[in-house]
Every structure is written in structure tokens, then in C-alpha cells.
Design a protein around this nucleic acid. Structure first.
Lengths: 203, 203
DNA sequence: GTCTATAACCTGATAGAC
DNA sequence: GTCTATCAGGTTATAGAC
């Protein structure tokens, strides 16, 4: 017999705490989160949080590392792949990123908010060279040697990620509901490659 | 004689607290800010903060309203202006926004972070209809009736604002220093209108 | 208006019983 | 492993002297 008899209910205590921590940290951010909130959300006792994870900060770092891997793990392998054309990479970034973010819409704003408040804490643990010295950058330089390749990296990321960054505002203001938002970002999967192509052409 | 004999030093106590609150709230966010931090930063006594502003929350709302006005006040009048062409609006948004954000680079991430944690608090006080039912939206619909105008509003804002949102990461990681960052965003003032024009063309 | 002192409460973390 | 009880320190806000 497996340890887990049920699907959600019989998670180990450790996993229950992690699941609750993901929810609460994501919603409130590190500073506004109380360890009591996490305990309540997970249905476990407050003391067990420290028993399993030693401190609020250690638990947060664990969750943050998961999030960073989701965020950068999607993109770094694509941009570094030497067998893909520039057009293929752009299409894959738009599609894969949109799908990851649709499942996890607060990922970018969560990461950027926390990194802004404490940049040193995580910046050393991230593969920035992988992005900024990637094969993708070389391809951009070959295609448009007249412009800094950073511009186009910024453009593809901005076009893909920016809607998710303003999503809380759009939804709270009633401009779009969740369903309409998802319909628009789904449309952008095929639009972004066309737009990027138009921007990359020399006029 | 004027009340103010010196320029920075002789601000009224109230203005000193507000200036310190701007600095500390922007840097740490609402939840991580301690009223003691603001008192120390401004050189005034802790009790005076409550004397002038009643509570931490009231002071924060005041600062947040200033920030929201800087952020939306730049853009709403341009997008609503019925005498400007689509191309003129795009050029003005890129230029004016970039200049405002260069002076106040953490403005967008500050606003979006705080609104994410507490969307209801500010969303009612914002002129979203001004943006999403503006003359600019009508012009987009006329130019590209086949696509939702939201896409192009997202694109102009994303291309302009996104670099400032990832700025803390870029600078902390050493990918760009402040000077190089400013050089790139300055370049984008003239690039964004060209890119938007290319995106708006039917192919 | 400004200060010191302190009230009233909250928060992360642990000791110790089971 | 899990719980209750509690400690030690921090936090917002105010009372009251000057």
C-alpha cells in the first residue's frame, strides 16, 4: 500500500504546510504573512511549522526557489537551444510562458515584488548569464546588429509577461474577468510571434 | 520673509514626514515598513507621525494617492485627447512615460505590488474607464477592427513600462548598471513608436 | 507642536507534556 | 510527531508633561 490513501487530504504534514505556505506567501507577500496564517490555512499546529522548517524565512526561501525554477526553468532552455531558429524560439517562449502563467498567474508579480524588496537575497542564485549571453541573444545580434539585443529580449518578455503583471488591476477594476483575460492571452500566443517578426524587420 | 529659509532642511515637520514616508514605503512596501523607520528617516519623533497623520495606514494612503496620480496622470490625458492622431499618442506615451519613470523608476512595481496585495483598496479610486473607453481605444478599433484594442494598449504599456518593472533584477544581477539602463530606455523612446507602427500594420 | 513613557497587542519561536 | 502554553521582543498608537 502507498503512504497516501487519499489525494489531497492525506498529504504529509510537511506537504500540507508547504501547500499552505505557497498560497499565503503568494497572496500576501513575505512581510505581510504571519506564520499563524500558514498554520491556519494548512490546518496544522503552529509549532509544527518550526518543527519542519525551522523558521518562517527558511520556509519562504524554499517556496521562492520553487517559484524561481518555474519562472526561469521555462525560458532558459529555450533561449539557450542551438538547434532552434530565432522564429521558433519566439513562438515557443510565447506559447510555453503563456501556458505556465495561465496556470500560475501571480508568479511574475510575486517574484518581482519580493526581489525588489530584497534583491541580493536571490539574485546570486539565478542563471542570468544563461539569458543574457544565450544563443538567443547571438541570433538577435545577427538579425539586427544595429540595435542592442536587450531590446528584443525585453520586447518578447514584455509582450508575454506584462498582461499577467497588470492582471490583478484589470480583474479588480472589472475591466476584464478571468475568462476574458484568459481569452486575450490565448490570442496573444499566435499574435506575439507576428508582432516580434514585424519589429525585427529593418525598415 | 518666506516660511522656508533653506531648501531641504527647513521643510515643515509634516513635509519631512511625508518625504520620509515616500522613501521608506517605496523601498520596503507597506507591510515591511515600520513607523519607526519613517520617524528615523525623517529625523522627527515617532509620536508626531500619529499627531499629523493619525495612523500608518492613513499616511500610506496619502503617499499611494500621490503615486497613482503620477502614474495615471501622465497617461490618461494623452489617451483621451481627441485632437491627437494615434501615432502622436503613441509617441507621447513612450516619451512622457519614460521620462516620468526615469525620474521615479520604482513607481510601477511599487503600485502593482501594493495593489496586488490589496486590490480593492485603490481600484475604486482610479480612472480605469478613462483608459479603457478612451479615444485611443476607439482609434485602435478603427485601425485594426480585427483585433481587440486591449492588445495594443497592453503592447504600448508593456514595451514602455516592462523594462522598469524588471529594473531591480537587471541592476542587482549586474546585467546593466543604472547608466546603461537609462541609455537603453532613452533609445526606446524613438524605437517604440516604430515598433508599434509595425505591429499595427495588417500583413 | 514636540517629547518621553508606556499601554495594548502581535509575532516568531521554543519548552515540555503527551 | 503533535499539541498547549508561554516567552521575549517588536509594533502601533496614545496619554500626559513640557
Amino acid at each position: 500500500m502507498s503512504k497516501k490513501k487519499k489525494i489531497e487530504v492525506d498529504l504529509s504534514t510537511e506537504e500540507k504546510i508547504k501547500a499552505a505556505a505557497r498560497t499565503v506567501f503568494t497572496k500576501k507577500g513575505y512581510a505581510a504573512t504571519r506564520t499563524r496564517d500558514i498554520a491556519e490555512e494548512s490546518g496544522i499546529n503552529l509549532a509544527l511549522l518550526n518543527y519542519y522548517f525551522r523558521s518562517k524565512e527558511k520556509l519562504f526561501e524554499l517556496i521562492m526557489m520553487e517559484k524561481l525554477n518555474s519562472f526561469f526553468g521555462t525560458i532558459a532552455p529555450i533561449l539557450g537551444d542551438k538547434t532552434l531558429t530565432l522564429e521558433q524560439k519566439i513562438a515557443m517562449v510565447a506559447e510555453n510562458y503563456t501556458k505556465v502563467l495561465t496556470e500560475n498567474p501571480d508568479l511574475p508579480l510575486f517574484i518581482l515584488s519580493e526581489m525588489r524588496m530584497n534583491p541580493e537575497q536571490f539574485v546570486t542564485k539565478l542563471p542570468f548569464e544563461k539569458l543574457f549571453e544565450s544563443h538567443f541573444i547571438k541570433q538577435l545580434q545577427e538579425t539586427r546588429p544595429d540595435l542592442h539585443p536587450m531590446h528584443f529580449l525585453m520586447n518578447i518578455l514584455g509582450l508575454t509577461v506584462f498582461p499577467f503583471i497588470v492582471r490583478p488591476v484589470l480583474i479588480a477594476s472589472g475591466v476584464l474577468n478571468e475568462k476574458a483575460f484568459n481569452a486575450r492571452t490565448e490570442e496573444r500566443i499566435s499574435l506575439i510571434p507576428k508582432w516580434m517578426n514585424a519589429m525585427l524587420k529593418k525598415k
